[in-house]
């Protein structure tokens, strides 16, 4: 599956950036798709369920907010998950890399969050269940100043409320 390949590359990037041995978290996210059986603590419909079994984030090209094919595939899984867990509401965070100016990046992050939200809505997730927020370049996941880190930081993250 295409999603799994993307997810593996992403994890490899994080591991390389940290320069440490894989932690249990990275091991579990890079594990087999049927991870629920090996992760008995994960509750269906929980934040961990979304992150580990569905994929909570999608990535964007530099200074872009259009969804890639990979991003749409992830969001399709998120939409199915949200329709299966109808009591869950989410906030979609839009983020940018550090290679832009602060105010423009707030606007760009807002566009990214809304691009993801709009796509979920076209997949029948009610708009009342989705809110958005932009963090611009304020909350990177990878603090390095490298192309690999910036690619990780240009993202939208779907967060269970």
């Amino acid at each position: 599956m295409r999603f799994k390949i993307v997810s593996l590359i992403a994890v490899a990037g994080v591991v390389a950036a940290c320069g440490t041995a894989p932690t249990s978290e990275t091991a579990s996210t890079s594990g087999d798709g049927s991870a629920t059986t090996s992760q008995p603590k994960i509750m269906p419909g929980s934040a961990d369920d979304l992150r580990v079994n569905v994929g909570d984030r999608v990535f964007f090209a530099f200074d872009r907010y259009e969804l890639t094919a990979e991003a749409r595939a992830t969001l399709q899984k998120q939409a199915a998950w949200m329709l299966a867990n109808s009591n869950v509401n989410v906030t979609i965070e839009g983020h940018c890399d550090e290679r832009g100016t602060r105010e423009y990046n707030l606007a760009l992050g807002d566009r990214r969050a809304n691009a993801a939200a709009d796509y979920l809505m076209t997949l029948n997730v009610p708009s009342t269940r989705i809110s958005t927020i932009s963090y611009g370049k304020e909350r990177p996941v990878d603090p390095a100043s490298t192309e690999a880190a910036w690619a990780q930081n240009r993202r939208s993250v779907t967060v269970v409320k």
Partner: peptide, 9 residues
């Protein structure tokens, strides 16, 4: 710039 561990910056 920060190094690969996020130091500096």
């Amino acid at each position: 710039p920060s190094d690969q561990y996020g130091r500096g910056g």
